[in-house]
Design a binder for these strands. Sequence first.
DNA 1: ACAGACAAGTTTGCAATGCAAACCTATTTG
DNA 2: CAAATAGGTTTGCATTGCAAACTTGTCTGT
Lengths: 113, 113
Amino acid sequence: MSAPSRIGEVMALDRLVHEPARLLILAVLVNAKEVEFGFLEQVSGLSKGNLSSHMGKLEAGGLIEVKKSFRGKRPLTELRITAAGRKALADYRQGLAMVVQELPAPSVAAKRK
Amino acid sequence: MSAPSRIGEVMALDRLVHEPARLLILAVLVNAKEVEFGFLEQVSGLSKGNLSSHMGKLEAGGLIEVKKSFRGKRPLTELRITAAGRKALADYRQGLAMVVQELPAPSVAAKRK
DNA sequence: ACAGACAAGTTTGCAATGCAAACCTATTTG
DNA sequence: CAAATAGGTTTGCATTGCAAACTTGTCTGT
């Protein structure tokens, strides 16, 4: 018989994307052309510090690009997902889909409490 | 306004289950009545140490039960998923399913090159 | 003009984590 | 008896995620 399941796939998930905070960031970015730091802070609910460090990691990994400029006299940081980022997210999504499939649907043999 | 999507769900994912190694463990356990430590070590590919510590956390969280006994003269550790574990896994699975749905299918605007 | 509040991020400090190497105890084999 | 194996646990370490504190600059009230 086949392995207990193909769930070993789960170990192949991209950890950079797997982290919820970063997945959230990527998910927002993938639906917009460009996103401001402040906006992201609001919709994500992440603290500035937390957001900043995740941003740094995503940038270091090449999944996003960060453009710094000024709006009037104030600093403005904008984030944009890269092609690599889209790919990573798509791959991750596919991995997730597999995991979801392999995980037993509770509806079947689950306990009705 | 409503959030860009319901992806904020991702932040609600149970971190205890979210960790790939533990998800793998739970996925194996949910399909079997009882599983031996050694077997799990093999199918998961985790080192004994790593497995042992994840096992400890799952047990501490009440998602699994660990039964220690002897087979002949040798120690034997068996793992079993609890009702809470099944529930946590089912909830997690549902969360994942939502995330997968909300994540854009790559087929649309995927590769330009 | 200046004190204080606010904006926009970055840096720092810390606790928690994941991982494997080393270790431990007991058994089996050469 | 020595060495290898089985079955796990503990230790040590490097990485992380998180928020508090800090930085730099603008704006408001008086």
